[in-house]
């Protein structure tokens, strides 16, 4: 209990990345974010493999049921995949590009989502409570152990900027890959220098360095903004939660009644904020994925705008509803 109350006295201490108990095992500092990322990856794989086995069309012997997805977790994946594709990605990127990038974007979305949701599970608190009940926290040995040796898993991996930078690096690679695929290496370099027209006009070469700097900065800033946005939202939400829980501990000197009342009130707000955090977990995963999709589509803007100018509506209208499904991904 002391541990829990104390956790409110330093909200950032509750939110920031810490050393895990694996540090002692490997002889090298292993942060909780590392463990969370690995566990999150396993969870994503298990969840998606399970969902795929449930979503796939069943044998003909199953009758009409062969078309029905069974299981809430699989249905959630189906709804998310279908909704993200038909409502978000396909309208923004166009059918061709959306289908081509769907595996990457969906992997990104579900990976970030799982890491965000894992942060809502108070694994760290459970371990701290268990440690506190064991009485180790009150001894010198316990204090030493509290420096990191007792926590095996917990925290929010996406509240670690390093993790987000790695994910943003994937987004960066995807964006640049799309650029090279659309324009070629030469075209990409020309694009960075302001376009072929500018490069071939010696009279305007003095502008090229300025544009090059701006474009290179833009290349980096776009994915960096993704990482920082995700990091800030995750840290902000969890800090707010920890701050709310801190109020009870702050009222310790006012007596038991004050502690109880304030804790109850703060706890009530914390429950509400938890629901908000649940929403934010989905929202930020979506934002990360969606902005990556937007940046990718910007690299193919000519092609897509060309489509829009020449019968985008007709293009959509002529497609059957089947074409709106994320199939034929490997056809591109």
């Amino acid at each position: 209990m002391h541990t829990v109350l104390a956790s409110g006295s330093n909200p950032l201490g509750h939110v920031l990345d810490k050393s895990s108990a694996f540090s002692g095992v490997f002889g090298h500092e292993v942060k909780l974010s590392v463990v969370s990322v690995i566990v999150g990856g396993v969870i994503v794989l298990a969840w998606m493999l399970f969902a795929a086995s449930r979503i796939r069309t069943g044998p003909e012997s199953a009758g009409h049921d062969r078309w029905v997805t069974k299981g809430r977790l699989a249905q959630l994946v189906e709804v998310l995949v279908d909704g993200l594709y038909t409502q978000m990605l396909e309208p923004v990127m166009g059918a061709r590009l959306a289908r081509a990038w769907l595996p990457f974007l969906l992997s990104l979305f579900f990976f970030v989502l799982v890491l965000n949701l894992m942060g809502l599970v108070p694994l760290m608190d459970i371990q701290e409570i268990a440690h506190g009940l064991g009485g180790k926290g009150e001894t010198e040995e316990g204090k030493e152990a509290a420096k990191g040796a007792l926590l095996w898993i917990g925290g929010t991996a996406t509240a670690c900027l390093s993790v987000n930078i790695a994910l943003a690096a994937w987004a960066f690679l995807a964006i640049q890959w799309q650029s090279v695929r659309e324009l070629g290496v030469k075209g990409t370099l020309e694009h960075l220098c302001g376009g072929a027209e500018l490069v071939r006009n010696p009279g305007l070469w003095f502008v090229v360095p300025i544009i090059l700097v701006v474009e290179v900065l833009g290349m980096v800033i776009k994915p960096a903004a993704l990482a920082i946005r995700l990091f800030a939202n995750m840290v902000g939400g969890h800090t707010l939660m920890a701050t709310l829980m801190m109020f009870g501990a702050m009222a310790a000197s006012l007596g038991v009644a004050a502690v109880g009342g304030i804790s109850l009130l703060a706890g009530g707000f914390a429950v509400i904020i938890t629901f908000l955090e649940l929403f934010v977990a989905f929202l930020q995963a979506f934002v990360f994925m969606f902005l990556t999709a937007v940046f990718i589509s910007q690299m193919a803007h000519h092609d897509e705008h060309h489509d829009e100018e020449h019968g985008h509506g007709e293009h959509h209208g002529s497609e059957s509803a089947a074409a709106h499904a994320p199939g034929a991904v490997h056809g591109h």
Binding site: S7, L12, G13, K143, A146, L161, V163, I165
Partner: peptide, 20 residues
Amino acid sequence: SLLLAAEGAGNPVSFEILPA
């Protein structure tokens, strides 16, 4: 114990190679 744990936490915006 919590304060100690908080002390163990790194700079929130520092880049660490292993998690990345």
